[in-house]
């Protein structure tokens, strides 16, 4: 897959009209994600009740890949259990770094439109940042950075 197929209509559409973009009054989990290398940052707020993500929103300034990833992520995890969301986080990350084949066995569905990112090592972090931040919010970590060594979602460019 090349970059042509990465910037396809579904991603451009989510960038233009992001879903679940805004603020959430009754959020009981939130996290700030930041990529200091490019200045991308986003904020995720969600409501976790009885193990389910009943509502989730995001806000921030970022590139199209990051924004579309956040938009599609929120649409996908809304109404899911925390455990299912964690599975998606893991699978998305593995797809982004080329460890999971998009046509293999997984739960990503249309999120495979991001599979082309594995050919763009410098952009992997853009796609992963929302997932990285969701993971932090679910685990009550207030802020994360793509450049933190101790972050379990840390993906260095060299590994990607």
């Amino acid at each position: 897959m090349n970059t042509k197929s990465l910037y396809q209509e579904v991603i451009l559409d989510h960038n233009r009209n992001p879903r679940n973009y805004g603020s959430l009054d009754n959020a009981n989990r939130s996290a700030e994600g930041h990529n200091p290398l490019c200045g991308d940052h986003l904020n995720i707020k969600l409501n976790l009740s009885r193990g389910y993500i009943s509502d989730i929103v995001f806000q921030g300034e970022s590139c199209a890949i990051c924004k579309a990833s956040a938009s599609m992520m929120t649409a996908n995890v809304k109404g899911k259990t925390q455990a299912d969301a964690e599975t998606l986080i893991q699978e998305f990350r593995e797809m982004a770094i080329g460890k999971l084949e998009p046509d293999g066995n997984h739960h990503l569905g249309r999120l495979t439109v991001f599979s082309g990112i594995r050919d763009l090592p410098t952009r992997v972090k853009c796609a992963i940042l929302p997932w990285h931040t969701l993971h932090a919010a679910l685990n009550s970590v207030a802020t994360i950075s793509t450049e933190d060594d101790d972050d379990p979602m840390h993906v260095s460019i060299g590994n990607a």
């Binding site: 090349n2 970059t3 042509k4 990465l6 910037y7 490019c38 590139c63 199209a64 890949i65 763009l120």
Partner: peptide, 13 residues
């Protein structure tokens, strides 16, 4: 309306 990183990736194309 276009982030520099998207510009860079598309110009590279």
């Amino acid at each position: 309306g276009v982030h520099p990183h998207d510009i860079g990736t598309l110009l590279n194309q």
